[in-house]
């Protein structure tokens, strides 16, 4: 890939998805787009860039954006956040919401479903503690293709062996030939919706827990700040925000504060006003309309 091609793709992705690649992400582009180029019968990245600039490329534009914004994901990814969910977040919520007996959870980068289904399995494993509770998990993602997969809950043999203990596979999945489908009972726990984080998401309502992992790393600083500030308005004053291992709010916003000794776990900084606070500074997000929709 030539520097010109790389710069073109950087700008292209910024304009179409808000994805902000740093100057050294050539490997990421190659690993995601080379297979796509080959599938489209193109010789490589160079020809792909040419095609993107030509007329009638809208289907290709969508594929490129989806390929670049889809994260590798697997069940119970990184494990630690799910331990926090079981050992810190849910015990606190079960106590705090004992009156209304309901919990709302948002997976803001739900991707192909492994994360929301991992949360659903964790909740199931809590058993009697949640009997009679109304549990709502909303999984959103930018990509329609990815959402369809999440909704179906069908995974390859390879996918169900990443991060998923064998007992959980046996308990919560049904084997159909070479694939495994998550049980209807767990599928029914999750609502899947298409959503671009750069757009307004106030209509989703407020949540007790927001998982927003490994998606903000792709955005530039101003966009991150803007998203954090808007997330703060969607989380209950005593709720939780869970970020990816390589992500933090520190130095970006004071709307959330990290929990000591709970890596990746944050709480709204001012519980009395968090859910009602207007956005702080934060520049308007970059243009983020998905092409071809």
């Amino acid at each position: 890939m030539t520097p010109t091609e790389y710069e073109y793709l950087r700008k292209f992705l910024r304009d179409h998805s808000g994805l902000d690649l740093s100057a050294d992400k050539q490997y990421l582009i190659e690993s995601r787009l080379l297979p796509l180029a080959r599938k489209a019968g193109l010789s490589g990245i160079g020809e792909l860039v040419q095609k993107l600039q030509g007329a009638g490329a809208s289907a290709l534009v969508t594929s490129v954006v989806e390929a670049m914004t889809t994260n590798e994901t697997f069940f119970f990814r990184d494990k630690v956040p799910f331990d926090h969910f079981r050992d810190t977040i849910m015990p606190e919520i079960i106590k705090a919401r004992a009156g209304r007996r309901s919990v709302r959870i948002w997976c803001a980068a739900g991707s192909t479903g492994q994360e929301p289904y991992s949360l659903a399995m964790s909740l199931k494993e809590m058993g009697a503690a949640l009997t009679g509770w109304r549990v709502e998990i909303i999984a959103t993602d930018l990509s329609q293709e990815v959402l369809e997969k999440a909704k179906a809950g069908i995974y390859s043999q390879f996918e169900v062996q990443r991060g998923l203990p064998i007992q959980m596979l046996m308990k919560y999945f049904k084997q159909t030939g070479e694939t495994w489908q998550i049980n209807p009972e767990l599928r029914a726990m999750i609502q899947h919706r298409q959503l671009n984080l750069l757009h307004d998401f106030a209509q989703l309502g407020t949540f007790d827990v927001i998982f927003c992992r490994n998606v903000l790393i792709y955005f530039d600083q101003d966009t991150k700040i803007n998203i954090f500030n808007r997330l703060a308005r969607q989380v209950e004053g005593d709720g939780f925000l869970v970020l990816g291992a390589a992500e933090t709010v520190v130095g970006l916003t004071d709307t959330f504060k990290p929990l000591p000794e709970r890596r990746g776990l944050y709480k709204p900084n001012d519980p009395r006003t968090a859910a009602a606070k207007p956005a702080l500074a934060g520049a308007a997000p970059r243009v983020a309309v998905m092409a071809g929709r």
Partner: peptide, 9 residues
């Protein structure tokens, strides 16, 4: 990856 995941499990 699968071996590492399962052994960690």
């Amino acid at each position: 990856d699968i071996i590492a995941d399962k052994f960690a499990e």
